[in-house]
Design a protein around this nucleic acid. Structure first.
Lengths: 187, 187, 187, 187
DNA sequence: CATGAATGAGAGTTCATTCAT
DNA sequence: GATGAATGAACTCTCATTCAT
């Protein structure tokens, strides 16, 4: 997680924080420059436009999420273990990188809709896991895309409501419950 | 659903369509006026500000969603039937009022965050259904808020991916599958 | 002072009150309509434009000031008495018709500058009194316009500061002091 | 009086000229930008709002008036000389800085009423001079605030009518006459 | 005569982007 | 590379005026 501290990275970090708090549109280049402690013009040395910056912020954090997630999948290739790791990975990432996670999910569904669709690796990975499980007869036959959507929705919505303080349970229990729920759906 | 066609409603309709396509922030009052075929000034005869307009659009559509949903819940008070009706209601509404549904869900999670939380009746209704089911021993004991979040997430995400054409199955089957999945989680 | 209460007069009265409080420019036709309890359109049945309305408000109140003032001048044609009556008349008018007085004076010096100059009868009357006094050797020779400006300034500024609460003396004494001061200048 | 010519000062100068000609409300930011030969946006790089600009214009010119005035008061502390210097200072400033003077006086009495009252140093200075004179028995006892208002009114009104061409006398004589008039009032 | 919804020109303000230094 | 003043297009919102009813 140790990041090189360059001006470019300062900008990306500042932008992430602000995009999350106020949304991309509502964040001004001035805001970003102030927070990154650089001048507005400098942003344009490193990025063609604000849109490109948003794109980079998104991709960088998606990449991070993705790396994080893969780490949780290395522990065996039993589909059930993979799924369990996947879920735990999502929750852990959300817990440890609140803003990054929220931005990846929120931007995916709204402001960066068009740009992000085909790059949403975590969703594709989930589909793969489900398909593998079906092939190995661990999971029953069903439309894998549909099932993946369900599970992904369960995860994001659960995390969303936990974040906004509307679900008062602790992480281990939520992870356990969610995993159990997923398996019940799939088996 | 026959609506009175007044200038005010024209504005609300135009705003809804545009808010959905581009988001609230990215939609200009000029856009709205052009689409509603009125002058910009007229918007301000009917609404104090663009923000108020957005609020009205949100509430009006939430109300519609809510009325629609209640209609599906009148068929008995068996929790299983209620849940099944709830899910069917969500899908049907999403199918028949694409834009309205998407706006209510999307705005809820992003641009109108603060304003809409406590008004999110559909979510609260789901929680009630689950609690009722638990009391009547139809559903097993569990944190109802957590379970509601899971189910709500399943529904919205599934609809989201169906809409964006990434899940190619027809409505009846999706509804059936989703209902089954929910029951598996809850029982 | 009994006024015919017609819609037209309602409008003029409402306009006067608002022009005084906020200035002509800052008062909207909507404000006026609301206060006069008529519709905006009605203003335009009685006046060609807001500017014309302001003009009428000004002239009407100037006329009132003027009538009031003349009443104080009927008590003899001794220049000293005339001047004394003039001063008393100004103060009394300012006391009894606060808003009307302030509007006439303020509008004269600012917003209606061009239109009001040649109609400022009270100023012209003052000049006449001074000239008369000089002819009759009651007042010493001096540029009557200059003296009139001095006296008029003394009066308006004194009233202005009394109104804004910065001079805490009562009317009789101020009138007496001001009259004495004027005579000292003129004799 | 040589001023640094920066864009900021260009804006202030343009604003002053226009505020004087048309009043603050009636002057648009577009007007100002055109006259200062800058873009409208630039105004907002230097001032938070048009209101702040007006405030700065006012204070800057009041300060100038004030400095100018003090210069005329350094020549002794005999109250009569002080008063004489004060009057001469006002007239000289009004002659040499027509627009600045008019704006300070006009804005003080109308558009900036609330903001400017407590900052009106020249008026407070006049009161001090009068009080000093009374203490030293040069001037007779009287309400100093009232006397100051009279004198200030005499000055401003006289200048106002000279400016608008209605008093055709030359400066030295007017100054002399006004000073004499003041002393007659005070002694 | 009266209404008030509608207009549209134009107000103040914001902000992504540029460019001389 | 870095700066930040300057830009100007586009934004939200206001308001005097009009006109069908």
């Amino acid at each position: 997680m140790a990041q090189v501290r360059t001006k470019k990275q300062d900008i990306v970090n500042a932008a992430l924080a602000l995009f999350m708090k106020k949304g991309i549109k509502a964040t001004t280049t001035r805001d970003i420059a102030l927070r990154a402690d650089i001048s507005e013009g400098t942003i344009y040395r490193h990025f063609k436009s604000k849109a490109e910056l948003a794109q980079v912020v998104f991709e960088q954090n998606l990449e991070l999420f993705w790396k994080h997630l893969r780490h949780y999948l290395h522990r065996g290739d039993d589909p059930e273990q993979l799924l369990s790791g996947y879920i735990r990975g999502c929750f852990e990432f959300a817990r440890r990188h609140q803003r990054r996670y929220s931005f990846v999910i929120a931007a995916h569904q709204t402001e960066l809709k068009k740009l992000s669709r085909q790059k949403m690796k975590p969703m594709r990975m989930l589909i793969k896991i489900l398909m593998l499980g079906q092939k190995q007869k661990f999971f029953r036959e069903a439309n894998a895309h549909l099932a993946a959507a369900m599970i992904f929705g369960m995860l994001t919505q659960t995390i969303f409501y936990m974040k906004s303080g509307q679900i008062a349970v602790n992480y281990p229990i939520v992870i356990q419950e969610t995993t159990a729920a997923c398996l019940r759906i799939l088996k």
